[in-house]
């Protein structure tokens, strides 16, 4: 058990290292000179050369990587080429909206999709199962954020009930924050729910055919007991892992939603950095996103090994 966990942590660190190398070289090797972008229409060959030297961009790539890695490991992600602010500060400022969006959406997704998938699996012969399943299939086939855009049109343009964008920190106004987050969270959740419902439904349908479900029925356990005590735990154990693997979809979805709703989060920070070839910011954002992915999956592994007795009691 302890060995298993140490292995998982080491694996996570290796993943992070690989991602950092990828983040660095992918941006460093991209065409275009940041110095030229920075100078804009002030650029002359001499000025570009001077700024390039100043930014250390004329040094050999391995040297630049070594320097960057040393700074990164010590927690210094560099300075933005654009605003000259520390990347650390930019990311810290952008993190809360993104975290809020991601966590609230994930909660909503889990709370809606898991019961729905379970109930759909058990009630597949009921009259409501077909239309509901149809709705889920529709949800999977509708393009990404179409529903979100519809929601904006409906609630902020037509009814003027909710803001169509922007972000208000909860510290400033709790109700303002809530109002601002309703549509983005709904949009992201509606984007993610159908796939999870389908996964849970299929997994639970498999569990329902397991012999131990017959054993439970033979004991006289009713439908609710079968679902809650036998099917749900065995389904969840697989679903937890699936959610961890779907985290990438959540992160990329959050980026799109931030851009649709102009939320000053990590996604928008990264997007602007890409458009402006702001290398340090791009690298920082990629690294933080990857770290989030690795940490959450590590936590899921941990939770998994505590829930599943076949691993826990080994």
């Amino acid at each position: 058990m302890a060995i298993y966990l140490v292995g998982r942590v080491l694996g996570g660190l290796v993943t992070l290292f690989c991602v950092s190398a990828l983040a660095f070289f992918a941006t460093a090797l991209a065409p275009g000179n940041p110095a030229a972008v920075l100078l804009g229409n002030l650029a002359t060959p001499e000025r570009i050369a001077a700024v390039t030297h100043e930014m250390g961009l004329d040094q050999p790539l391995p040297v630049r990587y070594a320097i960057w890695l040393r700074h990164t490991v010590t927690g210094n992600l560099g300075t933005s080429n654009l605003s000259f602010k520390p990347v650390n500060d930019l990311i810290l400022a952008a993190l809360p909206p993104t975290l809020e969006l991601a966590i609230l959406s994930l909660l909503l997704v889990v709370v809606v999709a898991i019961p729905m998938g379970l109930v759909l699996a058990q009630g597949r012969d009921r009259w409501w199962a077909r239309p509901l399943s149809g709705l889920v299939t529709l949800g999977i086939s509708v393009p990404g954020f179409w529903v979100g855009l519809l929601l904006i049109v409906l609630f902020s343009v037509t009814f003027k009930l909710l803001p169509s964008g922007g972000y208000i920190a909860p510290a400033r106004s709790l109700s303002g924050n809530a109002r601002a987050m309703v549509l983005p969270v709904l949009t992201l959740a509606i984007y993610l729910i159908p796939a999870l419902v389908r996964f849970v439904r299929v997994t639970a349908a498999t569990v329902l055919r397991e012999d131990y479900v017959d054993t439970a029925r033979a004991k006289g356990v009713g439908n609710a007991g079968i679902l809650l005590r036998h099917v749900a735990p065995n389904t969840l154990i697989t679903t937890i892992t699936y959610i961890g693997l779907q985290l990438g979809v959540l992160i990329s979805g959050a980026i799109v939603v931030e851009i649709i709703f102009s939320i000053p989060g990590l996604g928008r920070l990264g997007m602007n950095a890409v458009l402006n070839r702001d290398y340090p910011v791009i690298q920082g954002v990629v690294l933080v996103a990857a770290a989030g992915y690795v940490i959450v999956n590590l936590a899921i592994d941990l939770a998994y090994s505590m829930i599943d007795p076949r691993i826990r009691t080994r």
């Binding site: 397991e210 012999d211 054993t215 439970a216």
Partner: peptide, 11 residues
């Protein structure tokens, strides 16, 4: 049941 390996809930 026939198969004791699968007829008990593993959790």
């Amino acid at each position: 049941f026939q198969d004791p390996m699968t007829s008990l809930n593993p959790l």
